[in-house]
Design a binder for these strands. Structure first.
Lengths: 115, 115
DNA sequence: CTAGGACTTGAAGTAATGATGAAGTCAATG
DNA sequence: CATTGACTTCATCATTACTTCAAGTCCTAG
């Protein structure tokens, strides 16, 4: 289970190694270190990265994602996932509303120039 | 009519002077020059900038907006505005679809981690 | 004509999100 | 134990969309 290297987490999560290190620096994931100073992640890490990537599609920045994941305990329970899910959903819906508002501004009879 | 300075276009369009100069460098707007090498825009410029800002809300980059505005002749006709409007609308709808797809991935019974 | 504000350029800075490269270290294998 | 691939850090580059700065020029009002 635990004890994945950077490369393994990268493969499992579908991002590059440099991204994995970047995400650790940013606090999205945490790693233990071997005697030789190499990172060792537990399986949880790839999972958090996949969540992070969905959050990015929704439009969250890495900083926002850090805050989002900060409330997620290690070994999260269903309720924890539900909370994340709800927050991401709310955010996605907010962005959709913004886009609809832009659409309304674009349309609505007024010529673009008179916005 | 014609002959607005950077500052005047900035006030009319609601962006900063440095942004106006930036947009000119990027080809979103064009300017004539006085004998003393100062920019003089026509009223069209502030208009184009307002369009550009709507396009940014939709998620277009400045480069994409340049291409969008490139097809807009000086003194555009209703059909020209309609074309812009259609392209922006299509783009906004595409982004909305992407967000809905993300929402579907988030929901749909699968836990976030198994995406 | 002069003072002042508005303008000019070019370079450099900023923030976000990494990619890439150099130089060196670790770990598993034959 | 030597090789080799994966790892380490630190630095630098890239992109996007601007902002800020310095040093100098223009233009308009008085």
């Amino acid at each position: 289970m635990g004890a994945l290297t950077v490369g393994e987490v990268a493969r499992e999560s579908g991002v590059s190694g440099s991204a994995v290190r970047f995400y650790e620096r940013q606090g999205l994931i945490t790693a233990a270190r071997t005697g030789g100073n190499q990172r060792r992640f537990d399986g949880d890490a790839a999972c958090r990265i996949r969540v992070a990537r969905v959050a990015q599609r929704v439009g969250l920045t890495v900083n926002e994602i850090r805050d989002l994941l900060a409330v997620l305990p290690p070994d999260p329970q269903p309720a924890d996932w539900q909370g994340l899910h709800d927050r991401l959903t709310a955010e996605a819906e907010r962005r959709i509303r913004d886009l609809h508002a832009a659409l309304d501004d674009i349309g609505s009879g007024r010529r673009l120039c008179e916005l």
